[in-house]
Amino acid sequence: MKILLALDDNPRAVEQALLIARGRGAVLNALFVIDATWEMFTGHDWLSGCNARIGFLEYMLSQEEEAAVLALKTYKEQVAGIAGELLTVTGDVVDEIRKEAGKDYDLLVMSNPFTRGLEIMRDPVAKVARKLPCDLLLVRHAAKREESS
């Protein structure tokens, strides 16, 4: 069995993916997508001149990279003993998850809502789920779970 874990800031998704991988002896790949859609998100801002906009986009990229380092460090601490890879890519979060999920995985585990990068503003789960070639396990977001309880 081959599992893909889409990483965001939800520790419950990691816990669930590890639980299944350990129980099934599966290969677990974790994917962290550095969101590259800030340019599109702020594309309507035509007033920024000089180097304001590019400085902002570079700052956001540095923030995204910091988030990647932190997420991967936390993940590595928990994943000991399980076969698999840590993948980091830059791009549109939904596109990258769908692209990776198309590579012979049996199960995709992701948080719901999925809060990676600017996807907090969108509906990534619905877009990922559409015609997905593998099973999908949605794990309720820890923070959202606390809110509802």
Binding site: S48, E58, Y59, A67
Partner: peptide, 26 residues
């Protein structure tokens, strides 16, 4: 001052968090 352009210009200098910025811009 200028809405999105001003937040874009200020964000790096005040170490704004991506999630807050996304909410502010929206």
């Amino acid at each position: 001052v200028c809405g999105v352009s001003a937040s874009v210009a200020t964000a790096p200098g005040v170490r704004a968090k991506p999630v807050d910025l996304a909410m502010a811009i929206a």
